[in-house]
Computed example of a mutant assay.
Amino acid sequence: MNTEEKGSIENVVESVVKKALQPIGKALNGLVESNQQMIRGFAILSIFLALSILLLEYFRRWWKEDFELRFPIGGAAVVLHSSANASDFRSAVFIVPASKCWVNTGLEIENGKRISIRASGQIHLAMNQIEQEKIPLVLWSEPNGSPFVKLDSIDRTDLLVHKHYNDDEEQKLMIGNLVGYFLPVDDAENRDAYPSIDRPRPTKYGNVFHIGTKLENKLNDTGKRVHLWLTVNDIILDSTERGRKAYLGNHDAFIANAINQDKIKDISNENEFANESQKAEKLWINRQKEWFKIKSRKAWGLYYYDNIGHYLVTIVK
């Protein structure tokens, strides 16, 4: 075999070997690139964890007593203090659920001291009225509240936790607004004193006060160290005649609302109209039966049961 033939065979072999090794080389390159991406990912994660640890250490060393997550009296919300002592707080954040009538923040305000309160969020006072692609009769409320809607001829305004009128020229009565009350710490365990469904409008140490989205420099002038209580303004039923009327409403108005108005347009004779009226009367009877259940179970907070949403409240000394 001469030199030219040997060179030709070597070229062929080299070409075959290169082609055979090419996929392996690509695979190795892909593996290297993949490993490099993994290494970069681990590096970024390590940096993130290191920064998190440094941040936590910063909080631990410098602000270790400034923040405390706790469940205050009432257990309906979470408060974030900027002090380990409820009486020495500088600021606090509190969640007020719309479905709870009166919650105790656990924050203590000394006599003669002032606090400022800010609130945000949205609530709805009639969840069962919310229907898709329909405008509800009761609108969503913000901390300032929304205008009180009079459903029929019955006056329910005396059953509100607090009567507050907005600053507009029309002076509309508001509902769904954020309100507060100061109760002395000494009475915190006295169930006959603190605000509740049974005592929705306490007056022993002053009146319930409107907060809305902002209340500046509220003075504790009770003469005692107090807890701040908060709630959403809504109707509370009671066992009186006004409570019964507030729930049942007016008979004629109830019957008119119960009869299917769209169906009445197609009624052609008196018998069909009488049938619709009888159905409405049965609904009225059932409504009266429900009232007896409410009264026997003392479910005076019925109008809070279908409330949804919450207000986020910041309290600052």
Rank of each mutant, 00 (worst) to 15 (best):
L230D: 00
V79W: 00
G7M: 14
I53R: 05
K317N: 12
N177P: 01
Q171I: 03
A253I: 05
K282Q: 15
D262E: 13
E189M: 12
S277W: 14
M1T: 13
N190Y: 05
F148K: 05
I109H: 01
N2V: 03
R114V: 08
T105A: 04
E281W: 04
E142V: 13
Q122P: 00
S153L: 10
W102P: 01
I255R: 05
H124K: 08
N269S: 13
S34P: 00
T231W: 01
L51P: 03
L54Y: 11
K64C: 06
G180W: 02
S82Q: 12
W229V: 01
N275W: 04
E108F: 07
L49F: 15
I95W: 03
I315H: 03
L125C: 08
S99D: 10
Y58H: 11
A246I: 12
V17Y: 07
Q132G: 02
W140R: 00
V79L: 07
L28A: 13
K163H: 09
K224D: 06
P136A: 03
L54T: 13
L159Q: 01
G223V: 08
F148A: 04
F209V: 06
D221V: 14
K279A: 11
L80M: 10
S83L: 05
N29A: 15
V208W: 02
L312P: 00
F48E: 14
S153G: 11
W291F: 10
D192Y: 09
A92S: 15
E169L: 10
S239Q: 13
A86P: 06
S146W: 03
N257Q: 13
E108L: 12
E65F: 12
K163L: 15
S82M: 11
W229R: 01
D155A: 08
A193N: 05
E142Y: 04
V12N: 08
A274T: 09
I315W: 02
Y304D: 02
I95D: 06
T3C: 07
D238Y: 05
R70C: 01
H162C: 10
N35D: 11
I267P: 02
